[in-house]
Design a protein around this nucleic acid. Structure first.
Lengths: 166, 166
DNA sequence: TTTCATGCAAAATGTTTGCACACGA
DNA sequence: TCGTGTGCAAACATTTTGCATGAAA
């Protein structure tokens, strides 16, 4: 799964620092595994799922081979800590950076599975308004626009044209 | 899981008729099970998941006891046929009527799990515009606004106030 | 009478849990 | 040291599949 990116937002502490604060505030421990996972996850800006992460950290030649349950447990903590956002694509959990990253939504290409990020202040204010009308206290949203991306549209058009002309 | 409803849309044929057309157009058969499932699902307007449906049709005293795999298989066909829409709430597939029902989105209450439907033409046109900008051919969307509904806000406020005053 | 659909059981998938040992504070 | 975290294996929940039988066309 690939993705395109929005400009990052300035933040004062690193994801690791922020996670450590979070853990400490809850009386949880800063372990090698948790540290390694945050650093791994924030090394590059990408959408990923639990399996991607497990593959990467278990194949890793480094001494820190992190087990499947620990990855799942830590992902949950990272979401709680506000470092990651979780969404669902085809019934599987997909994660992305939340900390240091602006609010946005996604377009999901049904052909190549690419996630394209976009943001719109108008959507934000529109929903705010609708929430008020319904007395609904909004805490967040999950908006995924389905369809076919530019590249895949072009590819399939090119492939299909000869047949259409017969 | 409960829901609130939007006015229905006029349609010329019944869901069953439409499903039969769909099946025939694909060389599939109109079986007792498929017929029973469509009728069951469209008897009332409600959000439901596979388990709800399996419970209902397997507990059913009537002769048609429909098996789990058949329910799953038929749900998929109903989505393909455009009769049902599928979404994901907490990692499980949830279904709702699509045929004869206007385009809309949902607010999901984190406390009581209620789904509140709403529709907004502005969201529609906003996304249309954004799609154009990105060269993305939109086929649909999944928008779920998370938060707490009016009723649950009131309940928890009532409960919490005495404590806040101490 | 030929397919296709069903039901059964079992597999596959994605995620969570119980428990003994290891390790951070 | 104390109590939490980890890894293992197994459980779990949901959905899918292979295959023999049963029913539509």
């Amino acid at each position: 799964m690939s993705d395109s990116s929005l400009p990052a937002v300035e933040v004062s502490s690193t994801p690791l620092e922020r996670f450590e604060e979070f853990l400490q505030s809850r009386g949880k421990r800063v372990t090698q595994q948790r540290r390694a996972l945050v650093e791994h996850v924030f090394r590059r800006h990408e959408h990923f799922d639990a399996d991607d992460l497990i593959d990467e950290v278990s194949k890793s030649k480094s001494p820190e081979r992190i087990s499947r349950p620990t990855v799942y447990r830590t992902l949950k903590e990272l979401v709680d800590a506000g470092l990651l956002r979780q969404m669902n694509i085809n019934g599987r959990a997909v994660y992305e950076h939340d900390y240091g990253y602006p609010q946005h939504d996604h377009m999901h290409c049904e052909k190549c599975d690419k996630l394209i990020e976009f943001s719109s202040d108008d959507i934000q204010s529109l929903l705010q308004e609708i929430g008020l009308e319904h007395g609904f206290r909004i805490s967040g949203r999950r908006l995924i626009v389905n369809g076919v991306c530019k590249e895949c549209s072009q590819t399939s058009r090119r492939r299909k044209r000869p047949l259409d002309l017969i």
